[in-house]
Computed example of a mutant assay.
Amino acid sequence: METWKEPQTIILWIIIVALFVIILLTSIIFLVRTIFKKIIKAKEKEAAIQLDYQKNLLETTIKTQEIERHRIAADIHDGLIGKLTALKMQQEITSKDQKTIDALHESITVARRISHDLSPPLVEFTKLPELIKELLDPWEQHLLITTIFDIRAEINDTEEFKVQITRLIQEIITNTIKHAEATQMYLHLKQTENYMALYISDNGKGYDVAKNSKGLGTKNIETRVQFLKGVYKVKSKIGKGTSNMFLFKN
């Protein structure tokens, strides 16, 4: 009997072939996994670059908006209000036309409010609850506003953070006045050492969140929340009002 036909030899060859196939399959699997890892790493790197770009673009957009708001507010305060005040004083001295004087006084008040809304004065020295109270004050002639400030820790918020929070509230109030037909609004601000939570609700007509999530106002809110690295959720039902919830970790 030839040697290669012996059972031991055949078994040995089978073992050798099996080992070769196993090694080959292992090598192929390892190579495929390596290729997939490289592809995944490339995709992750691309996603990280895209995310950084979006963050930089978002930050630039927000900061550019604030610079332009500040410029317009300064123009209104230093230019328009100054001229209106001078004209009012002239009317008080010369003609004493009370209707004109009252109209000029009202115009100055409106211009000052617009200027403050665009760029709140002394933000760096004012605590967030005080800024919110000042912001809500002009709207209380349109809405019954209930506020609760639960301040459990004195948080020295940055000027940028406080400005963006006031922008969020402004956006929600504007949407409420324009669309909600609400008569009441509730605002609850809670600050602790670890987080700041803001809850705003109204008794308006409500809307379908799924169908109305692409509006400019909603996008502005989402953009600012993303800029502040916070979490935002809105709930609304037809005829049941709307509630907005924000959470920002310290």
Rank of each mutant, 00 (worst) to 15 (best):
D202W: 00
G241T: 10
G204Y: 04
L228S: 02
W139T: 00
Q141I: 11
F125L: 12
F149N: 00
M185V: 09
L80T: 01
G241F: 07
K249S: 10
A210M: 13
K96I: 05
T218S: 05
W4F: 12
K5L: 14
T146A: 09
A74D: 06
E44P: 06
Q226D: 15
L24M: 14
T94V: 15
M185L: 14
F161W: 07
V32G: 05
Q191I: 13
K162I: 02
L58G: 02
T109E: 15
V163Y: 00
V110C: 08
K63W: 04
I76P: 03
H179Y: 15
K249P: 01
L128E: 04
A111G: 11
T242N: 02
A18T: 15
V209M: 00
K211F: 06
T100Q: 07
D102G: 00
E181S: 12
T60W: 08
H105L: 01
S119Y: 06
F20E: 03
S243Q: 15
L187A: 02
E154R: 11
I49P: 02
I35G: 12
I76Q: 03
M196F: 06
L57G: 00
I108A: 07
Q98W: 14
A47S: 06
L216T: 15
P121R: 13
Y199L: 10
E222V: 06
M245T: 07
I165E: 03
F161Q: 04
M245H: 13
T176L: 01
E193Q: 12
L135R: 08
N212I: 04
L12G: 13
K83F: 09
I155K: 07
L104M: 10
K96R: 15
L80H: 03
L216P: 02
I16H: 10
K133Y: 06
H105V: 05
S27V: 11
N194F: 11
E171V: 07
A18P: 08
I114V: 08
Q54A: 13
A111R: 05
D117N: 14
I49E: 15
A86Q: 14
E66Q: 10
G239R: 08
A86L: 09
L80C: 08
S95T: 15
E66V: 03
L51Q: 14
F125W: 08
N156V: 09
K178P: 07
Q50S: 09
L189Y: 02
F149S: 01
T26Q: 14
K99M: 12
I39C: 08
T174M: 05
